[in-house]
Amino acid sequence: MKKYDFDEPVQREGTNSLKYDARAKFFGNADVLPLWVADMDFKTPDFIMNALRQRMEHEVLGYTFRADSYFQAIADWMKSRHDWGIQKEWISYSPGVVAGLNLLIETFTQRGDEVIVQTPVYFPFFESVTGTGRVVLDNPLKMEEGRYTFDLDDLKSKISEKTKMLLLCNPQNPGGMVWSREELTALANLCLEHNILMVSDEIHSDLVFDGYTHTPLATISDEVAQNCVVCMAPSKTFNTAGLTTSFLIIPNKRLFTRYERTLSVPHLHMGNIFGHLALEAAFTKGEDWRRQLMEYLQGNFNFMVDYLKEHLPQAKPMILEATYLAWIDFSALGLTDEELNKTLIEGGVAFNKGVQFGKNGSGYMRLNLGCTRSTLEEALLRMVSVLSR
């Protein structure tokens, strides 16, 4: 087994990197250490890069289709990673999960309909709803024993005849929870009772730490499978976000057909050559790399927890069950959200503001652990130095 080096620094400046080359635009400071947008600083795995280089040897980049091996790679990965047997006929395409969310909202709801969003949550959820002329129905998560869980009583009190869809983040971003089968079952049954279509963003499903198990929503029951769409991609796990390739798993044939029609009219169904090849390489050759990545990320999280406990105990990170995105409560410092963000930027670090994820994210910041240990250590040093003052 090849040993991968996640401590190796990679020069990302000068590549039109959103994370690095847009720092001045987003933070007013081109020198901050960027631990914000959710891509990693590690090299995209060699088996993916080799597949792309091999294809580049052929000097025609014309129209292509997704080969049977592409669909088989997804099916095999779902079976081996999640014990989920899926069929080729369930697999559709999307140029990114967020694009898929928008297309699904356009397909299965009408303007003015309510779409349930459970905050704090990945902020493009809000834009996907409001940008398509729908209405956000906020069902805030509740905190129990240091982790979030669903507030079903609140949801029951808010559902109306206009409530048509629920956007689920599974595993959860930014909190990093791995929803249990019991939690998902209770939520899914409530949606079935009220004829609410569930759309499950499971892009972080392969970034689950030891001791936790991801449950794809569609595996809850056959009835739930017929009432949901699962959105996945290799991009977070294998650092290929720039290839804009994701896939949707839609077991319900009627829903599948309607979505495919929406996708094909603007010719979004074709995808791109390199995204298809990267996905196939990731899902056929990527398990060893994924395991080593998770070990490194666990080490980064443990390092951060110990560092904060010693140097800034007022900052309380939520226990991370999945993802490489740490959710840290800074409310004990007594700063407003703007004061906290401004102070950190002045101190030379850039995170995501908690309020981006919903008003109940106030007091929090999201920190990207997908970086070298030395980068993380420097970021924590800067953070502690400026906040201690």
Results as ranks from 00 to 15, higher is better:
S92G: 09
E338G: 11
V115F: 00
T44W: 04
R291T: 06
D46F: 10
A241N: 15
V32A: 05
P317I: 04
R373L: 12
K2Q: 13
K88H: 12
T375R: 15
I116D: 00
D151Y: 11
D206K: 09
F65Y: 04
N239E: 07
L104A: 12
Y122L: 04
K142H: 04
A30P: 14
D153P: 04
G354T: 08
T132L: 07
T284M: 10
E145P: 05
L369N: 05
M383D: 03
L381M: 11
R111M: 04
M49C: 01
M40G: 11
D76E: 15
K236V: 06
M270E: 13
V98T: 15
C228E: 09
V117I: 05
Y4F: 15
A186L: 08
I48S: 01
I249L: 13
G175I: 05
E145A: 14
T213I: 09
E287A: 09
Y122E: 00
G271Y: 12
E280G: 10
T107H: 06
T343P: 11
A188S: 14
D306A: 15
T240F: 09
T119M: 00
E378I: 04
M165Q: 00
L192Q: 10
I86A: 02
G370N: 05
F47G: 05
L325Q: 10
F274I: 07
N102W: 03
A24G: 13
D306I: 09
R111T: 07
Q314E: 14
M177T: 12
T244L: 12
N102Y: 05
E145I: 08
T245M: 08
F65Q: 03
N272Q: 13
G275L: 10
A379C: 09
L277Q: 07
I319W: 08
E202P: 02
L103T: 09
E114S: 04
V386K: 15
M56C: 10
L344F: 12
S331H: 07
N300M: 03
